[in-house]
Amino acid sequence: MNVFRLTGDIAHLLAIILLLMKIWKTRSCAGVSGKSQMMFALVFTTRYLDLITNFISLYNTTMKMIFIASSYGTLYLMFLKFRATYDSNHDTFRMEFLVVPVAGLSFLVNHDFSPLEILWTFSIYLESVAILPQLFMISKTGEAETITSHYLFALGSYRALYILNWVYRFYFEGFFDLIAVVAGCVQTVLYCDFFYLYITKVWKGKKLTLPA
């Protein structure tokens, strides 16, 4: 555990809490992609199956359980409790275009050809692209609520901080997980355009809107 990893995890947790708070307080999930949220639930479910088989630490177990529970909590709010506010007309990204190639790749490129390891790899690859429906939705509507943009900034920062964690671990622990690093870099790059808009607009007190 190093400071980058810890702040990355906190940013991730903060992102999830921000999203849940936005939906709960506004009683609405308008502007949130249900498809991205479904894929995040799938990511946590397939990655954290080792909760059953392997104990690492109290921190590890607690965070994993929070991530799994909150992802299903978000789905419950979006698809059951506040279903009427779900903006499905703008959430038109085709999930199969991500899930199918990612599933194929996780069978081909993994650390070990075992069920749990393939599922872990699947979750790493899927996480790297799971935000695309959300970004696609923003590009379709041309804007995002400020709280939604804070959520995305925290979520993007998490993987960027993990990259610093991997650099640290490479130099000080000789540790290097190619699959995690490549997928993590792809994931972070996908946010770059959003980061630019967020810093130039939201930090100056404006709403996040896309240039015409």
Binding site: N54, I56, H111, F175, D177
Partner: peptide
């Protein structure tokens, strides 16, 4: 190590 079979990272 090239990977951590325990996957301690979240």
């Amino acid at each position: 190590a090239t990977y951590d079979p325990n996957h301690d990272e979240l």
